[in-house]
Write a protein that binds this DNA or RNA. Structure first.
Length: 189
DNA sequence: CGTTTTTGACCGGCGC
DNA sequence: GCGCCGGTCAAAAACG
């Protein structure tokens, strides 16, 4: 398991892994393969090849000051201010946020948590919308947004904000485990 | 019938 | 101040 983490951070060329979930309910098995692989989706749905790149520092993705930019100037941009959100309960704490890209034809990866969609917006300069999800666990405030790259519709960018403080209902190893590691390692954000 | 999605309204921040 | 933009709310519809 620690290996995943190591791989993630050492990878400047994208690591290739197997397997993604599809939208809700399906869980995927995370086969640890190298080289572009075929993967097994537990529901027998479309099989995806997943190329996961760690968002920060990866191609098409950079971190400027307090905002993350997706694509360069021409592209759509995911923007993440740290903490200075509205809503009265602004705690001067930073919201750690990170994103990664996935080559997949399904938008919503199954990371083991249950999400409720609460919004969708048109992304400027892109024909694809961006979807906003929130974790449905009672009291859990984690959000994520999912957006497809404008110049390469094969790539899906998932941005997570916040950290889960509760278990998953999934048992098998899944994206969730990797994500958890990424998040704890990036808590410096 | 409870839960999730859809979708336009709304709201705050920012640039002009 | 005004309008745009990104993000969220919420009512109604859809779903299972």
């Amino acid at each position: 398991m620690e290996n995943y983490q190591t791989h993630l951070f050492l990878a400047s060329p994208p690591q290739t892994w197997a397997s993604l979930g599809d939208d809700r309910g399906a869980s995927a098995h995370f086969h640890h393969h190298h080289g572009g692989d075929v993967v097994v989706d537990s529901n027998g749905r479309e099989v995806k090849q997943a190329v996961v790149e760690l968002g920060v520092g990866a191609n098409n993705y950079c971190y400027h000051g307090d905002k993350y930019c997706l694509g360069d100037e021409s592209g759509a941009s995911i923007e993440a201010k740290s903490g200075t959100k509205k809503g009265g309960d602004h705690k001067g704490k930073k919201r750690h946020k990170f994103a990664f890209q996935t080559r997949s034809h399904v938008d919503v990866l199954d990371d083991g948590y249950r999400w409720r969609k609460y919004g969708q917006k048109i992304v400027k300069n892109s024909k694809f919308p961006r979807s906003y999800y929130k974790c449905t666990f009672n009291g859990c405030n984690v959000k994520k947004q999912i957006q497809r790259l404008c110049n390469d519709e094969g790539i899906v960018v998932t941005t997570y904000e916040g950290m889960h403080s509760h278990p998953t209902d999934k048992t098998s190893d899944n994206f969730d485990h990797i994500l958890k590691h990424i998040q704890t390692s990036y808590s410096a954000f």
